[in-house]
Computed example of a mutant assay.
Amino acid sequence: MSFEGSTLIDWVAFTKARTELGAGFVRILGYFREDGVKSVAAIDAAMRAGSAAQMIIPAHTLKGEARQFGAEPLADLAEAIEEIARDCVETRDTPDDALLHVARLRPLFNDTLALLEREANPLAERRPAGGFGRRV
Rank of each mutant, 00 (worst) to 15 (best):
S2V: 09
E4M: 15
G5C: 07
T7I: 13
A13Q: 09
T15K: 13
T15M: 02
K16E: 11
A17Y: 01
A17M: 08
T19E: 09
T19S: 10
E20Y: 12
L21A: 09
G24E: 15
F32K: 09
E34K: 14
E34I: 12
D35R: 11
A42L: 13
I43H: 03
D44V: 05
G50D: 05
A52V: 09
Q54D: 12
M55S: 03
I56K: 02
P58S: 04
A59Q: 00
H60D: 02
H60C: 12
H60Y: 02
T61M: 08
L62H: 01
A66P: 06
R67L: 14
Q68K: 01
F69S: 06
F69C: 02
G70L: 06
G70S: 08
A71P: 00
P73E: 08
A75M: 07
A80K: 14
D87C: 09
T94H: 00
T94Q: 08
D96H: 13
D96T: 14
L99N: 01
L100N: 09
H101E: 10
V102A: 12
V102W: 07
V102I: 12
R104Y: 04
L105H: 04
R106F: 04
R106V: 02
N110V: 15
D111L: 15
L116F: 09
R118D: 10
E119W: 04
A120C: 08
N121D: 14
N121A: 12
N121V: 07
P122S: 04
L123H: 14
L123F: 08
L123E: 15
A129V: 11
